[in-house]
């Protein structure tokens, strides 16, 4: 069994030391620092990218909230404006209606007065006509001409009945 030949041990151990030592040095001083730095950089980049994304999301959410707030404010302002407008229009309408009512009442009062005057005039005319008619009738039947005052008094009496 060649494995048990001690004459080869020296050379094998010497070269093992050289080769393994070289591999150890290359790995520990060049390869491992490089790879660990790469992995670290990658982890850091991912972390910072995620943080950046989180920040941007927060900004977007804040913008959305601000927009919704502005919208709600605008809506309530619009409501207030509409109410004010409605009240103004109502007041204007009321005012104009009152004015119109007053005007109409005035006109109605004027018309009543004219009507009353016309009726009084008509009544007076009627009295005069009735007195004339009574005078004519009395003349025709040949009675003495009654005094104007008496006729008028009698007519008033009739009219009162």
């Amino acid at each position: 069994m060649p494995q048990l030949d001690p004459s080869t041990f020296g050379s094998q151990l010497f070269w093992l030391l050289v080769c393994f030592g070289a591999l150890y040095l290359v790995l520990s001083f060049i390869v491992i620092p490089r790879i660990s730095r790469t992995l670290e950089t990658r982890a850091e980049t991912m972390e910072s990218d995620l943080a950046e994304a989180e920040k941007l999301r927060g900004q977007a959410e804040a913008a959305l909230a601000a927009y919704e707030e502005a919208l709600a404010e605008a809506r309530s302002r619009a409501l207030v404006l509409a109410q004010e407008m409605r009240a103004e229009v109502q007041a204007e309408t009321d005012r104009q209606k009152a004015e119109l009512d007053a005007q109409l009442a005035e006109q109605a009062a004027g018309a009543d007065k004219i009507l009353a005057a016309a009726r009084d005039a008509a009544m007076a005319d009627l009295k005069t006509a009735a007195a004339e008619l009574v005078g004519d009738v009395m003349q025709a039947i040949g009675t003495d001409k009654a005094a104007d005052g008496d006729v008028a008094k009698a007519l008033d009496k009739v009219a009162a009945e």
Binding site: T8, G10, S11, L13, F14, W15, L16, C19, F20
Partner: peptide, 23 residues
């Protein structure tokens, strides 16, 4: 200590060379 370069040494050097180059 005998330091002769043997077939064993050759393949050790190759193993270390290949793995070291690879890494």
């Amino acid at each position: 200590i005998d330091t002769s370069f043997t077939n064993s040494s050759l393949w050790m050097v190759l193993a270390v060379g290949l793995s070291g180059m690879f890494m």
